[in-house]
Amino acid sequence: MVKRNTENVLEVSELNTWYGDRKILSDINLSVSRNEIMVIMGHSGSGKSTLLRYILGLEKIKEGIIKLLNKEVAKLSKDELYKLRKRIGVAFQSGALFNSMTVGENIELPLHENTDLDENTIKIMSRIKLELMQLSGTESLMPAELSGGMLKRAGLARAVIMDPELLFFDEPSAGLDPITSAHLDNLILQLRDTLNMSIIVVTHELESAFKIADRITILDKGEIILVGSKEVIKKSNDSRIINMLERRAISNPLDAKDYLNRLTKK
């Protein structure tokens, strides 16, 4: 494990969110240090992606505080938020590349829009990142011509093109074959070690999480049930964590009469 700086790049305190009347996240408290890889885990519907959207300022915070790179997200003006976001990178689950642009144009977009660099420098930077993602030669291809794994890596190349201080991954290994998935895991570790990035990964892939994480946060039904190192997670006595680690299905003993009543209830 890499020795971490104690400065926090992300602090979430007492975050509560609702979707209509339904509570999605309850009392979320979380901090991520500089140069740390934090993995946020949980089964589908546990609130991982919602938490990510709130951290990124894509949803309006009603209760709680989120500090991203020492700035309180809710108190920033629109322009200040855009300025802050230039210091972070986000790799979306689908890649979220623009279909009307080539892969190269997609990757160069943040540099074209946010910097005054000349065209040649932008091209060189984009090639460096594509090579890092093992995507050399794909610059002139359209996103529709790439495979799922290549799309994710191209999305990642775009996320790191500005050399962000903090990088977010939404489900990096979902839907990928084991070799591509392992390659992405190595890439995440390489980004932390070579470019000194702090990285937050949202995933439900156990193997990947235990390979890359410095610390793991486990979410269940919108609540954090444990935050700790891999060892702490493995030693936990919490049945929900044990079920998850041992990939046990949650079984609900079925009462035939009760089940029939539920089905026929008006």
């Binding site: 629109k78 689908s94 829009e113 946010n114």
Partner: peptide, 21 residues
């Protein structure tokens, strides 16, 4: 249709996250 597809494919969120209005 183009902007709607960009919305459902997170492309508009991606723009926001890149610091592009």
């Amino acid at each position: 249709a183009e902007i709607g597809i960009m919305r459902i494919d997170n492309q508009i969120d991606a723009l926001e996250c890149m610091g592009i209005d």
